[in-house]
Design a protein around this nucleic acid. Sequence first.
DNA 1: CCGAAATCTTGATTGATTCAAGAAAGTGGA
DNA 2: TCCACTTTCTTGAATCAATCAAGATTTCGG
Lengths: 143, 143
Amino acid sequence: MPTVTDFERMLRGAALRVTRPRLAVLTAVHHHPHADTDSIIGVVRDDLGDVSHQAVYDVLRALSAAGLVRRIQPAGSVGRYESRTGDNHHHVVCRSCGVIADVDCAVGDAPCLTPSDDHGIAIDEAEVIYWGLCPDCSTAQSS
Amino acid sequence: MPTVTDFERMLRGAALRVTRPRLAVLTAVHHHPHADTDSIIGVVRDDLGDVSHQAVYDVLRALSAAGLVRRIQPAGSVGRYESRTGDNHHHVVCRSCGVIADVDCAVGDAPCLTPSDDHGIAIDEAEVIYWGLCPDCSTAQSS
DNA sequence: CCGAAATCTTGATTGATTCAAGAAAGTGGA
DNA sequence: TCCACTTTCTTGAATCAATCAAGATTTCGG
């Protein structure tokens, strides 16, 4: 797990100013993968005291734009953030409870980045979401 | 394109009552792939006159549950609906303007349904979203 | 240490979606 | 063909993530 100094370096490397809210958000995302914005606000407030939700929204957007975190939003879910970026991993999502788990790319390196017909769109990423039922919800439903 | 009679059969086949709003919504989704709920409400109202937005939401959910339409919701977009179901096709989405286009599965038949590690989740669908820039947005940005 | 630019705070607003209760319509059986 | 039962639709309000706006703070290069 990176240290605060590492996070500082990451921010500076992305030409972003180093502020306490940003360090706290970056730390929170690293410690709580797939957390939604509201959870991150909670964690950040535990860390810093009062922080406006607007600041967290701004920071998350800035970090996403800089590529330091990645925003994911499976259908029917609110925005969630994770710190694994650039490694082409994907997600498994439970249809019932919404839990998200990471999955490394099934077929190797960015295999799906070559659709049969791209309709002229310059594709830069292929996102894969596996939908299913987690063990807990599976037993709950069959009962 | 299916006829009204076909839509009636589809509804009955799914054990759903045949109502004017449902026929209108089903028709609208078939004629306007990837339309959001609001557009569908508009189309349905052009067809039937006043229809409550609640009815359209209900119908879309019922049709989704029955598998007659499929709901998709790329990150940052509102819910959208399409009539192609069960053929394992995927989508290309423009990061800038949000247009959606269909893509047939790149590697054949449900290739991605076998992630390296499913974390115990019983997977029933693999959804692939290709992100990129459409030609229009591409030229607009470079200028 | 200073000033410009970016960032954060406060407070209001938007907009898709859902909830709730009662009216209306569709369906199977008489 | 008509009835009763159930589902579906209407009306109206509420929720909640996310965004907008304007002014106060803070960061950081010089």
